[in-house]
């Protein structure tokens, strides 16, 4: 078992005031068969809004809120402790829906061709998934700025470059072509920096964490925040507001042993 302390904060700065700001945050990590979350604390600014919790159909905890008053900065901060009690999530049998393609992982010609050229030879699902992960890692170049949150797996593989989110999406698309149930994960993995994206591969009654951008199983310092079929199911922050304004987001996070 490993004990971790985590912190995550994000700040959205708007070019002009916005109002009637409604938001859904998937920023609270949930305890599962791999991680136990202790003493989670959150703060949201401005503080004059209404905040309440909800839950989505993927099992994520949501912080919902509505801030009517005009504001030009919106921020939230989450911290707490986590105990990593297992190398895989043993809490649930992977649902069938994770075997079907989702908006951002729909395979096109490029992914189908790649799959047919790299069809795994192993027997077990986990070994097959890791073969696909290897092939993908060799074909992709980690590069920021070439993709954004709306980039599909197909587009990312076609240009051969992207970030952790793109690696995750391509990997999910390939696994699903292979009949493997798998899901997208947002979380914290580094001593400091931004949030990370990885995946979980379902096999038997377990979910195995696989980090395609680093071509390995996840380590003990990974803390899952939320999951879904792909990124579009579980953005950490999603909001809608009144105001002709563009927002700039800065994110900081840290994970440390204690």
């Amino acid at each position: 078992m490993k004990r971790l302390r985590f912190e995550y904060s994000a700040e959205l700065t708007f070019s002009q005031n916005v109002s009637e700001h409604c938001f859904t945050l998937r920023c609270l990590p949930v305890s599962d068969g791999r991680q136990l979350i202790r003493e989670p604390v959150y703060e949201i600014f401005p503080q004059n809004g209404r905040i309440w919790t909800s839950r989505d159909s993927f099992g994520n905890t949501l912080l919902c809120g509505r801030i009517s008053e005009p504001h030009d900065v919106f921020s939230f901060r989450v911290s707490g402790k986590a105990e990593i009690i297992n190398t895989r999530d043993i809490s649930g049998f992977p649902a069938a829906v994770y075997g079907y393609s989702s908006p951002l992982t729909k395979p096109g010609e490029v992914i189908r061709k790649f799959y047919s050229e790299n069809t795994p030879a192993s027997n077990s699902q986990i070994d097959r998934a890791m073969e696909l992960c290897n092939a993908l890692y060799a074909a992709m170049k980690y590069e920021k700025g070439k993709t954004d949150v709306h980039t599909t797996a197909e587009e990312a593989l076609e240009q051969g470059a992207g970030v952790c989110q793109d690696y995750a999406h391509i990997f999910l698309a390939l696994c699903r072509l292979d009949g493997i149930r798998c899901r997208y994960v947002s979380g914290l993995a580094f001593e400091s920096g931004e949030t990370h994206a990885w995946t979980e591969v379902g096999s038997g009654s377990c979910w195995y964490g696989v980090d395609p951008a680093n071509n390995r199983f996840i380590g003990e310092n990974y803390i899952k925040i939320c999951h879904g079929r792909d990124y579009s199911d579980c953005p950490i922050e999603r909001g809608i507001y009144l105001g002709n304004s563009s927002g700039v987001q800065t994110v900081t996070s840290s994970v440390a042993e204690f």
């Binding site: 409604c22 859904t24 909800s54 839950r55 989505d56 159909s57 919902c64 509505r66 809608i240």
Partner: peptide, 10 residues
């Protein structure tokens, strides 16, 4: 309507 699905789910 933002959050109407949360009201419905609840």
């Amino acid at each position: 309507i933002p959050h109407i699905m949360d009201a419905y789910r609840a």
